Simulated assay, not measured.
Amino acid sequence: MRINYDFGDLEAFLAVKETGSFHAAAQRLNLSQSAVTRRVQKLEDALGSQLFERTTRSLKPTLAAKRLQARAEAILEDAQETTRAMRDESVEFAHQRGAVISVATIATVVAPLLLPAIRAFRANGHTARIRFLDGSANEVAEAVVAGEADFGLCSIPMLEPLTEFVPLFDDRIVLAVPTEHPLAKRATASLNDLGDTPLILPRRGTGNRLLIDEAIARARTPLSWTYEVGRSTTALELVENGMGVALLPQSATRSANVATCALTAPNIARSVGLLSRLGQKDTPAVAALKTAIRSVV
Rank of each mutant, 00 (worst) to 15 (best):
A24V: 13
A146D: 09
V272N: 05
F169V: 12
L10Q: 08
D282C: 09
G20S: 11
F121P: 00
L247S: 14
L113H: 15
A65D: 10
R172Y: 05
L114D: 14
A15D: 11
T226E: 06
A146I: 03
L31K: 15
A184H: 01
Y227H: 13
I268M: 07
S136P: 04
A65L: 05
K17M: 11
A46L: 09
K281C: 03
D6C: 11
E73Y: 01
T234S: 12
R172I: 01
K281L: 14
G8Q: 10
R67F: 00
L159R: 13
T253G: 10
R220N: 11
R87V: 02
F22P: 02
L14R: 08
L31C: 12
L76A: 00
E89Q: 04
L183E: 09
A72P: 03
A24D: 15
L168G: 08
P61Q: 01
D78K: 15
A235I: 10
D78A: 15
F93S: 03
G205V: 12
V239G: 12
C154N: 08
L47P: 02
S21D: 12
M1C: 02
A287Y: 08
V296S: 07
A252R: 15
V145T: 10
P112N: 01
I75W: 15
E160T: 08
A120S: 14
R203Y: 01
N192I: 03
L10E: 04
Q280V: 04
T127C: 00
K290I: 07
P249M: 04
S232E: 15
R119G: 02
P178H: 02
V36K: 15
A187V: 09
V91G: 00
L278E: 13
L210Y: 07
L153T: 10
L114N: 13
T291F: 06
N138W: 00
L210E: 14
G205K: 11
E53P: 00
L201T: 15
L31D: 08
Q41W: 06
L159P: 05
G242L: 10
L14N: 10
F93T: 03
L275I: 09
L59D: 11
L175K: 02
E139C: 03
V245N: 13
F169H: 11
I156M: 07
P266L: 01
A99Q: 07
R277W: 05
I3T: 08
I268L: 09
S276F: 01
P182R: 06
R209Y: 09
E11P: 00
Q69R: 12
E228A: 00
T83H: 06
G230L: 04
N124D: 14
S255T: 04
G273W: 09
L114V: 12
G98M: 05
L43T: 06
D282M: 10
Q50S: 05
G195V: 07
Q41C: 04
P284Y: 07
T56W: 04
L211V: 10
